[in-house]
Computed example of a mutant assay.
Amino acid sequence: MKASITDEQFFSNLLHLPKPSYPFPDFIHPDFQVQREEYYKWIDTEYIIHSKEAREKHKKHNLTDIAARGCPFLKSLVELRPLANYTANGAMMDDYFDRCSREEMYIIMDKIMALVSGSVSREPEEPGIFHLFWQLRQDAVRCAIPENIYNRFIKSMKDVFIGYAEEKVYYRTNTVPPLSVYLLIRAETSGVKPYCDYVALQKDYRKLPDEIFDHPFIRRLYTLSSLMIGIHNDIISLPKELSREGDTMNLVKVLQQENNISLKEAYMRALDMHDAYLNEFELLQRKMSFFGEYQELVSNYVHDLGVMISGVYAWHTNDTSRYVNNGYVEGEYTNKG
């Protein structure tokens, strides 16, 4: 790891560069503060595997606010809770297993998927990551998430974990991936596709038939949402990732290596890619005129995908603790190999 640096050094090269922006409104769920309190309790009772320093840092991150901003129109805290669990537990799990191997991550994924799918129904005896994912399923059953939406949600979760596993190859060798590989992995590790599925629980979107969610236009909007959020996360977290070895899954680093250009040039190209994806999202949003009786409902759903994007970005821009110097939680898992 690189030597300690000052806050001024940490941000000096990036402070004055342009940032992403969105034309979509952003909101926050009215129960966000109550959900925060539950999150703090999760950290104190479930995340005892983390050091006290790590737990206190996590509390400052308010990770459940991402769910509250991404799906602000859910009817109740009960409906918000499974998404908040996935968000906070997934992020803290990713931090904890930061330097585990690809093979270990696949084993972890299989355990999680067995719990969230219900194929393993017994409650884990120990508190922690797996117990929280078991709890996610209990809460999903409690709020009667329709089976088709829940199955899409956990399938997307699995794809996120596959992305986590595949990026370990690059993290553990401190290797920057090729752009094509980065795009495939980042579309999953941004963690956004489960959000796209969960947006369907808001308003009347659960009335939409499955074939609409499988439509190529909708699937492409999911990918665009994932890449935009992945890139704006890369941009915001870049100072942190420039200061740590192994943080190679960042578009700015990828473009800098692939094109042999300066950091600033790579940053601007990353922003250009983000804006191109945003333009494509808006184009598809305008051109969807083939959903018949569901046209208005689909249009509103796509609008709320935009709200989700703005909401997640609002969390990133309001956060003053996770991506600042020494604010990130270092991985505490001890590698077996």
Rank of each mutant, 00 (worst) to 15 (best):
G90H: 10
R322D: 06
D275E: 15
Y294R: 05
L201E: 07
R244F: 11
D197G: 07
A144C: 01
R81Y: 01
Y313D: 07
I154Y: 03
K19Q: 09
S101D: 03
P25L: 06
T175F: 02
Q135H: 08
I154K: 03
A91V: 13
I107E: 12
C71D: 01
L183V: 06
G90V: 13
K59N: 01
S310T: 08
S180Y: 06
I154H: 02
K203M: 08
P239M: 01
M113E: 04
A84V: 00
I261P: 09
A84L: 00
L305S: 01
A67I: 04
Q257Y: 04
P209R: 15
E265F: 07
N233F: 00
I212Q: 12
I212H: 10
D98P: 00
Y47L: 09
E296C: 01
I107S: 08
L15V: 11
L283F: 15
K75N: 13
E104H: 12
N148H: 12
A144Y: 00
K168Y: 03
K57P: 04
L74T: 10
D31P: 03
L297Q: 14
L83F: 10
I154L: 03
D159F: 10
R69I: 05
A165L: 07
R286A: 15
V78M: 09
D44L: 06
G90I: 14
F11T: 07
V176D: 05
V169K: 13
Y328T: 07
C196V: 13
E126T: 13
V181F: 03
P72K: 08
I309V: 14
Y170D: 03
G327R: 07
I309R: 04
M105P: 01
N85P: 02
D319T: 02
Q135E: 14
D275F: 15
I309A: 04
H303L: 06
I145W: 00
S226A: 12
I66Q: 05
W315N: 11
Y333P: 07
A200Q: 05
P30F: 08
K60Y: 02
V181M: 09
S225V: 01
E53W: 09
Y170M: 02
S180A: 12
V169A: 09
R69E: 04
L63A: 11
Y294N: 14
N260D: 15
L283G: 12
C100I: 13
Q9M: 06
A91I: 14
R219K: 15
S190A: 15
N85W: 04
L263R: 10
Y205I: 12
R69M: 07
T223Q: 09
L132C: 01
R206W: 00
D98Y: 03
E103C: 01
Q33A: 13
Y294I: 04
H29W: 01
P18V: 03
L227A: 01
L283M: 15
S117L: 04
N259Q: 12
S289A: 09
G90W: 10
S117G: 08
Y323A: 06
S225T: 05
E147P: 00
T173V: 03
R286G: 12
S262T: 15
K253W: 05
F213K: 09
L208G: 02
T334F: 09
Y222W: 07
K158A: 15
D272L: 10
A3N: 13
V307W: 04
R99P: 02
S310Q: 06
